[in-house]
Design a protein around this nucleic acid. Structure first.
Lengths: 334, 334
DNA sequence: TTGAAAGCGCTAACAT
DNA sequence: ATGTTAGCGCTTTCAA
């Protein structure tokens, strides 16, 4: 590995000047700067992050914590995060908090404390008090996407408002008998996002003066299969049948579309369906949805973090993420 | 941040002994080892990877290069890689080589040369000569998943054999008029996997003495939508119509299922469909497929790398990955 | 604007 | 089995 001394020798300056020229910190004459650039280039010199971070305290690396990698929403947010960070010259170290509770504990107790990162982005994780404290104790810039966590800077979409928007779309089309596939009101209280979406749904109905039928609330696990099963229940049970379904995720909405087809209901003629997310398959299924642009969420979080790292103190670290109703073919007037 | 000196003082030993006790390298008496462990624990001491890697040359970090994050196959492999690596105490630094050619170049020219990683895993990337050379020049253990790249240790499934297996499954059910959705024979020559799958298909047909109809080869882009369009072409065109379709990926196979339904063909009564991958949605659609267990692929690659890092020199770095025909509901006798 | 030199917090060779 | 100590390759004071 070529070291800074060789660059210094070739450029005819001291190692201090090489360091200053390459990092852009401190004053270097244009002439020296150019000679250093050329020397480094010709030798193929790259600053060792080991040595650099030990000396400076900066790593040029951001830690990203995700709860899943193999689910569309999370990997899409992550994709946005990494591309924005890499474009800015940062490496990204990934902490995948999956099922294994022991690994999860280790991430907060050890991995994140190795001084490997300058900042942390937590993607849609429900952090408990202890984990939040440990994150804060790192004394590093931290941004959470999707929360909300009152102790952290959080970029979040207003899930209640998103759900209201989806529901109001159905209401404005004349639907009154609207079912919801999503959080289980009894068991999912700890999970903010599903619950917020259910509450938004209930609020919109209440505002429209519609009394919610309890049997129109069908819990599901946010997968296509879960949405399929839930929709079959809603459509197959004797008794009142909904004319529209609001699913708390696009994947569940797609499951509902397939269930409706299998039962012989035409979408949207017999049944309107709306989802949330902006899933890549939404266009294929002509799914009406509230797009929350996960790729852009990741990019925004990265940008906010970079601003903090650059010392832009007046950058608002938290904030509301945008969303948009995309009306396609699965909803219609009743 | 608590440092090694504080631990040494509290344990009543030198910093060298602390280092030895914590890393497990060199001899330490059980008594000292325990005192160090307790001291470190009570102080919440974690070895600084900055300082440790500068002194030792080891980072406890593995770099992973992926071409996409937001596609199921790649994020699933990555999930397997990260969970296995994290279980072994390693961090994972992610290099997402997406569209942006400038970033891609930087990854090989700069990011990977920062001395941040002990080893590299390249997931299903078509690396050119220059990139391969740069990877090799790092002088680090490198394992590629899916390749094949003759210059790298590669874990790879035999794509031709996988395709033969899928095709032979259809042949054994009595199908003669089998179409393939996948690589474009004219344009996709540079992409190994699609092309190998097409060749396996053609070989199986040839072995069965069946002449392939050129119009039964329909190129598509490995998405659900692409599979849908391709199947519509195959089924909608006047002239001979296939009784079975072999799609080079599960996502395209799912598209084909949906296309068949829309055109009024019953699956598998009128049309058998088989895919490749082991996609999470396969079970929902009752899709017959050749499962290549991407999660296990990632885990295996990680295990192979860890063996190399542990100095197990006789560990076979390369090798063939397993696959398995999963017969579900989309294929039947004709 | 530049250079000399003192660390950054560990590890490993060497000595005991 | 343990301690002493010289680095690892940079960055950043400090002085010029």
């Amino acid at each position: 590995m070529v070291s800074i001394d060789e660059v210094a020798k070739l450029a005819g300056v001291s190692t201090a000047t090489v360091s200053r020229a390459l990092s852009g910190r401190g004053h270097v004459s244009p002439a020296s700067r150019e000679r250093v650039r050329v020397a480094a280039e010709s030798l193929g010199y790259v600053v060792s992050s080991r040595a650099s971070s030990l000396a400076s305290g900066r790593t040029q690396n951001v830690g990203v914590i995700v709860p899943f990698l193999d689910r569309w929403f999370f990997s899409t947010v992550l994709s946005g995060v990494t591309s924005a960070l890499m474009r800015a010259g940062y490496d990204v170290t990934l902490y995948n908090i999956t099922a294994d509770a022991a690994v999860r504990r280790e991430v907060f107790a050890t991995f994140l404390r190795r001084q490997r990162v300058d900042a942390v982005i937590a993607v849609s994780i429900e952090l408990d008090e202890d984990e939040t404290s440990r994150l804060l104790a790192l004394d590093l810039p931290v941004i959470a996407i999707g929360g909300p966590n009152p102790r952290l800077h959080t970029l979040t979409v207003d899930d209640t408002a998103v759900a209201r928007l989806a529901t109001e779309h159905l209401l404005s089309l004349g639907h009154r008998d609207i079912a919801h596939i999503g959080a289980n009101p009894e068991f999912d209280l700890d999970f903010h996002i599903p619950t917020q979406r259910r509450l938004g749904f209930e609020e919109a109905l209440a505002d429209a003066g519609i009394r919610l039928k309890p049997e129109f609330l069908e819990p599901a696990d946010f997968t296509v299969d879960g949405g399929y099963r839930a929709a079959k229940q809603l459509l197959g049970r004797p008794g009142p049948r909904p004319t529209a379904i609001f699913a708390a995720s696009d994947e569940m909405a797609i499951g509902a579309i397939l269930a409706a087809r299998d039962l012989g209901f035409a979408v949207p003629e017999d049944l309107s369906i709306v989802g949330i997310d902006g899933h890549e398959l939404g266009e294929f299924f002509q799914l009406t949805t509230v797009d929350q642009a996960p790729l852009a969420q990741g990019e925004r979080a990265a940008a906010a973090l970079l601003a903090q790292l650059d010392g832009v103190t007046d950058a608002p670290a938290g904030g509301d993420l945008p969303y948009e109703l995309i009306v396609r073919g699965t909803t219609a007037r009743r």
